[in-house]
């Protein structure tokens, strides 16, 4: 049981998610089952094998440093739940 109440709180904090009381028990059960299953990877020897993040070699992609029009402020704010004329609005973060 890797996923106990403490762990659920901890990863909830990392992920900015708070589960309802009625979601919590089943989430714990399901996640423990899934993580137990993920532990089957322990059967395979990976010593000396380099971790592969992309299936094909990826290189840095460069482009010329040219001035081009960028996304307009109006477009960026188009979908904001709360905004002023020129910015996203969020609750006060310090006094």
């Amino acid at each position: 049981m890797v996923i106990d109440d403490k762990m659920i709180d901890y990863i909830g904090e990392l992920a900015r998610l708070k589960l309802q009381d009625n979601e919590r028990e089943s989430a714990k059960n399901e996640m423990n089952k899934i993580i137990d299953y993920m532990d089957t990877l322990n059967k395979i020897d990976t010593s000396g094998i380099e971790a592969m993040s992309h299936a094909f070699p990826v290189k840095n992609v460069f482009r010329k440093d040219e001035v081009k029009p960028s996304i307009s402020r109006e477009d960026l704010l188009l979908n904001a739940p709360d905004k002023s004329e020129e910015a996203f609005k969020v609750p006060k973060t310090f006094d």
Binding site: V2, I3, M7, I8, Y10, I11, G12, L14, A15, L17, L19, E23, A27, E30, M31, I34, I35, M38
Partner: peptide
């Protein structure tokens, strides 16, 4: 719920 579960598993395996 399924999305929350996957985000939390992801946060766990990266923690």
């Amino acid at each position: 719920m399924e999305v929350k579960r996957r985000i939390m598993i992801g946060a766990f395996v990266l923690s």
